[in-house]
Each structure stands twice: as C-alpha cells, then as structure tokens.
C-alpha cells in the first residue's frame, strides 16, 4: 500500500491535470472549489482520473456526494446546516477532515459545506480505500 505522501503526490498530479494548475498551488489544505477553482463538472473529471491513476473504482456519491441537502431533508434551515445536517455530513463524509467539520459546526452556513472538499479529504478517502 502506498504511503500517505505517495498518495498525496498522485492526488496532486491528478488535480494539476484536471484543473490546469501548477503543482505548488495544490497543498494538503487546499479547498477544491474556493482555492483551486474546481467547478461541479470538474468533480466528475477528478473521479475519472483518480480511478485511472490509482486503479480503483469509486462508486457514485462516495467521494463527492451530490445533493446533500434536498429541500425537505431537514438538514438545513434558513441557510444554515442543522445539527441533524451536521450528523449526516459526518456519516456521509467520514473522510472529511475533523478540523474542517469543526469549523463548519462553528459557522454552519450552507455555503461553507463545500469547504469540506479539500485535498486532504481526497487523500483520506484514498488511504482508507486502498487499505480496505
């Protein structure tokens, strides 16, 4: 099984290819949308490349869940993630960084949810996937 550093390096080169970035722009704490400029369709491209580069299958919604908050889910109210929503996020995104989840709990605006999608989150996901 590759080391965490090796996984990071591969994720870094994957993101360089998918998002047209320079290597030094991609750090462990980079947020895919806010820092690296990823748009929704890029997530599909990233998943394709990760599957190819790591030789694994990533089922839909496992790494980047879609539609986390439907209108009647009770996960968000008045633009803020509810306690139930935070629990759901912890369940659906076990690979999310604890620090970013804690930050979201403190400032639970719905637009902050996408900050959970960091390079570290992708590395965590792959490390657990490759260890399985």
């Amino acid at each position: 099984m590759p080391s965490r550093d090796e996984i990071f390096e591969k994720v870094q080169s994957t993101l360089v290819d998918a998002l047209g970035l320079d290597e030094d722009e991609v750090t462990a704490t980079s947020r895919l949308k806010a820092d690296l400029g990823a748009e929704s369709i890029d997530f599909l491209d990233i998943v394709f490349r990760l599957e190819k580069n790591f030789g694994i299958k990533i089922p839909r919604n496992e790494l980047f869940p879609e539609s986390l908050f439907t209108a009647d889910s009770g996960f968000a109210e008045n633009g803020r993630v509810t306690a139930k929503g935070l629990d759901e996020l912890r369940t659906r995104l076990p690979h999310a960084d604890k620090d970013t989840l804690d930050a979201l709990a403190k400032d639970p605006r719905v637009e902050n949810v996408e900050d959970l999608f960091t390079v570290n989150m992708v590395v965590n996901f792959l490390a657990s996937k490759l260890a399985a």
Binding site: D45, F48, K52, R60
Partner: peptide, 10 residues
C-alpha cells in the same frame, strides 16, 4: 472510450 459510468464518460 476511457470511462463510461452512469454520471458520464471520457
């Protein structure tokens, strides 16, 4: 064809 999944392909 490099990828063909339910969500799309490449």
């Amino acid at each position: 064809l490099i990828e063909a999944r339910d969500e799309g392909g490449m």
